[in-house]
């Protein structure tokens, strides 16, 4: 589903954020991306949903080489991926319902479908009664659940998350990860870049560790680090 071949990213300011990373992630996997700050986790995630392009090497998602993708194919590609960000990236001037519905609006879903799917997915993330609230009226954990709801409302094949719990307390973080695991159980591939050491260790899923932009470890049923 996701293939990186010697992928490197050199930013315009000459920072080599990713240095020849290679790995393959299969359908329905749950994968953690870990590593110290500045290791290149966010860069990696941005390559997967094609916010950035690799400066060398290949990134292939859904059997498509992202460097060869034409700009007008990109929106249709992104609709197959749900993205969750550390800072939620919600539309501040729209209600919870509209934020989640937006992902369906862009795919031109019918009104009936929107009325059916949005409450269902808000139910799943436990925000059924907050539909009419605005993002700023919600706690951080609630906002992240909205952004998670938006990411999965389209039934994407892949969900990628970049430090989805970076701004949340441990309990709330745990809830978000439970949701991600639930989404994965339903067959969606999940890739999460995170610093949440305890959770990574408890989950016992595949771990890809980065350091200075290189893959230094790639283990099935891995832990956050080797040291303990």
């Amino acid at each position: 589903m996701i293939l990186l071949e010697n992928a490197s990213k050199l930013y315009a300011n000459k920072v080599l954020a990713l240095d020849g990373a290679s790995f393959y992630i299969d359908r329905s996997e749950f994968v953690f991306i870990v590593g110290p700050s500045g290791a290149g986790k966010s860069t990696l995630v941005r390559l997967i949903y094609r916010e950035e392009l690799p400066t060398s090497g290949r990134v292939v998602v859904f059997d498509k080489d992202l460097s060869k993708m034409r700009p007008r194919e990109v929106p249709f590609f992104r609709r197959r991926i749900g993205v969750v960000f550390q800072d939620f990236k919600l539309l501040e001037d729209r209600t919870v319902f509209e934020n989640v519905a937006f992902a369906l609006r862009v795919t031109e879903s019918t009104r009936r479908e929107i009325k059916r799917r949005v409450p269902a997915v808000l139910e799943l993330v436990g925000l059924r009664d907050k539909q009419r609230s605005y993002p700023r009226q919600l706690s951080g954990g609630e906002q992240q659940r909205v952004s998670l709801a938006r990411a999965i409302v389209n039934n994407p094949e892949l969900v990628v998350a970049d430090e989805p719990t970076g701004n949340l307390d441990p309990d709330t973080a745990w809830e978000i990860f439970q949701l991600l695991r639930e989404i994965n159980r339903r067959g969606t591939t999940v890739v999460v870049a995170t610093h949440a050491k305890e959770i990574v260790n408890r989950f016992g899923k595949r771990v890809i560790a980065l350091k200075d932009g290189q893959v230094v470890r790639d283990e099935e049923k891995g832990a956050y680090s080797n040291e303990d």
Partner: peptide, 15 residues
């Protein structure tokens, strides 16, 4: 920011 988010969610330019 609004435009950026819309694009990340998969909106076309025309949309």
């Amino acid at each position: 920011r609004e435009v950026y988010i819309m694009k990340l969610v998969g909106a076309t330019d025309a949309f």
